[in-house]
Design a binder for these strands. Structure first.
Lengths: 201, 201
DNA sequence: TGGTGACTTGACTGATGAGTCAGTTAGTAA
DNA sequence: TTACTAACTGACTCATCAGTCAAGTCACCA
């Protein structure tokens, strides 16, 4: 259990997946070589093939692993907060693509979109993750409405709007748009929450 | 002039770029082979290399070509309309990723994001196109405010919100989200316009 | 008629990289 | 000590593909 935070039971397998998603984030899905993975883990190409049938399997597993652990980490953080308004603001904060891990995770998401758009086989996985994330927003919104701190919006519609907006802004940040810094992204998102969701005092 | 709609002066070069962006849309940026391009055009790989220094050049030119002609086509359509409200609604309509050409163009956009996020050399091109598209929205909004049919919002902020939202929704459609059909996408976007921009009657 | 150059061809070369496999090592049980 | 096995190694094979090049074709002009 201690060595298997999100469903990977084998230590070496875990090392490979962690190294792989980082490589995907840095170089791109199609620029990752089995030799690169082996080197990053400090092992041989044969070992990678010993644990995974083929390169595609490593890559797809790594996508899943990255998203899964990001989701788990964020859920963990949010669980600490009780107030719906704080939760949503925290969620935005956790999602901002600053340099480092979160930015790398966004890089993986963008690759994931590109792959899922082209390869129908990836869509169920993608949509499952995406649906779970949107559901998390829905629950917070419902909670806030029940608490009386949010306006009585349609939670599903609101979650779709917020998550689409977040994705669109993240693209701008990741592609280095001069108009959209991380700070600007936060402002746009928090303004949206304030104007649409937070009840007038 | 007749054979050069958007800045490609050579007939064969144009054929190659058109075939290439379609292939990128269908197979993905990294799954396009020079031999595929040659076959699609009905020529040899040598010819592709005769007109372009290398494969990367063809691919990047094809990204530019695709976006440029899509932008030109939409501008052409919008120019026909006078009313700012109609223009914005038409713009949304033109951007909906239905099956066919527009969907393929969105597929190319998604690939473009993934590439630009990883290869800084592509960012100026990406940001130039993106900025131009956002400016188009800004001008329509300014026009509408001047006409008195739009509320006095901040045009830049509104354009950023609308375009980010559009991108995020398009991702959901292209990745086959069961929650987000083309119709749903239109509804979310038109609701947004109605609630935020269109002046109360 | 023959020369010139733009364009085209497709067989070839060389590099790259996924996947294989015979052999090694280390751990464990009998 | 021996036997067995899981994990690992890295040199090798083989397919793929970008890019090259010598040999064309064709239009046009002198």
């Amino acid at each position: 259990m201690t060595s298997a935070p999100v469903g990977v039971d084998d230590a070496r397998k875990l090392e490979i997946l962690q190294a792989t998603w980082r490589l995907i984030a840095e170089r791109g899905y199609h620029e990752v070589r089995v030799a690169d993975i082996a080197k990053a883990v400090g092992t041989s190409t044969g070992t990678v093939h010993y644990h995974f049938p083929g390169k595609q399997d490593v890559l797809v597993e790594a996508l899943r692993y990255c998203v899964k652990q990001a989701f788990a980490r964020q859920s963990e953080e949010l669980r600490k907060l009780e107030d719906a308004r704080e939760r949503l603001l925290k969620l935005i904060e956790l999602q901002l693509p600053r340099a480092g891990q979160v930015r790398d995770e966004w890089s993986v998401w963008i690759q994931f979109w590109a792959e899922a758009a082209l390869r129908p086989g990836l869509r169920p996985v993608h949509n499952d993750f995406y649906g779970r994330w949107r559901q998390a927003v829905v629950r917070i919104v419902e909670h806030g409405i029940a608490q009386g701190v949010f306006r009585p919006v349609d939670p599903d519609a609101f979650a779709l709007h917020l998550s689409s907006l977040t994705d669109g802004l993240a693209i701008q940040v990741l592609t280095g748009s001069p108009q959209v810094s991380v700070t600007r992204m936060r402002d746009v998102l928090t303004d949206f929450l304030r104007d649409e969701l937070f009840a007038a005092a």
